[in-house]
Design a binder for these strands. Structure first.
Length: 295
DNA sequence: GCCTGTTTAAGTTTTT
DNA sequence: AAAAACTTAAACAGGC
């Protein structure tokens, strides 16, 4: 069946979930993040169906933004006043939609924290880190230090994602509904650099455009459990060595009591010591990357 | 009062 | 049939 062209849905309900529509909107933006009002606008512009009953579907959409871990909220920069935060895609949610089916995902995206019960001490540390980053965002120190570290000391190679990772094709409205967009050039990808306060944080590889240095506070846009997710979600691409991941020993662990068993594809983790103060959140990797490649 | 955001609950649809 | 994903409704809070 040919793909529908732009606006061809007319008044019919498009076969995309709110999550898909929202992701399209975010991905279509230059900065890979949008305020709520612009997400509304994008959807109404592309899909006439959503020009009616706005209260109904917009409520649903807001529910989805809050409820789903695949969306993260990014505070506005002080020099960009306006209502509400920006919304971006969680960097690890690239595989949410498989086989081009944007209507229903096979699995709901959940962060590591949502999937397992982290020990309270670790959770607290993560929350503190998050709070700290939020604070940094507010006072604007972050942008400065980030830009300095970016221009002066790039610590990682720019990452070109392997074709197998993240969205099979750039998740843009054009790609989904345009009939003949074969050479959809993905926009340039820039790898996140670590926030200086999170020592040992490894820039997240393997995600497409969801977070970039163009975000107002690139480090801040990092979900606090990203480091933990790095431990738990080492993707096949990372394991396959496509990604310049910094070798580091693990300090987070699955040895904690009451933690659900981790999937077999994950490296062994170990938790050592007392609750980590925020400044020493130091997720490092003890397992090697020689884990059998999943393919 | 409106907009944004969070949360809970219940119903519907699709997949396994 | 059961489970999971998704939709819808609604209550509520906070900020402007």
């Amino acid at each position: 069946m040919p793909r529908p062209g732009r606006h061809s849905y007319s008044d019919q309900k498009p076969p995309y979930s709110y999550i898909a529509l929202t992701a399209m909107a975010i991905q279509s933006s230059g900065e890979k993040m949008l305020p709520l009002s612009d997400i509304y606008k994008f959807i109404m512009d592309r899909f006439p169906f959503y020009r009616d009953n706005t209260q109904r579907w917009q409520n649903s959409l807001r529910h989805n933004l809050s409820f789903n871990d695949c969306f993260i909220k990014i505070p506005r920069r002080p020099d960009r006043p306006g209502k509400g935060s920006y919304w971006a895609l969680h960097p690890m949610c690239g595989d949410m939609f498989e086989n081009g089916s944007f209507l229903r995902r096979r699995k709901r995206f959940k962060t590591l924290r949502a999937q397992i019960s982290l020990p309270e001490s670790v959770r607290q540390s993560l929350d503190q880190a998050h709070a700290y980053l939020q604070h940094q965002a507010k006072i604007g120190l972050q942008a400065q230090s980030m830009s300095q570290s970016i221009t002066q000391t790039p610590r990682y190679q720019p990452y070109t994602p392997p074709t197998s990772t993240a969205f099979k094709q750039p998740f843009t409205i054009e790609n989904i509904i345009a009939p003949d967009n074969k050479n959809s050039a993905a926009s340039p990808r820039v790898q996140m650099l670590p926030h200086p306060s999170l020592t040992g944080y490894t820039a997240l590889p393997g995600f497409p455009n969801s977070l970039s240095l163009r975000h107002p506070f690139a480090g801040t846009s990092l979900h606090p459990d990203i480091s933990a997710m790095n431990l738990g979600h080492l993707s096949r691409d990372i394991l396959a060595g496509h990604v310049p991941i910094k070798p580091m020993p693990l300090t987070l662990s699955n040895q904690t009591r009451g933690v659900a068993p981790l999937p077999t594809s994950l490296p062994a983790l170990s938790l050592a010591g007392p609750p980590l103060p925020m400044t020493s959140l130091n997720f490092t990797q003890t397992s090697t990357l020689t884990t059998p490649v999943l393919r």
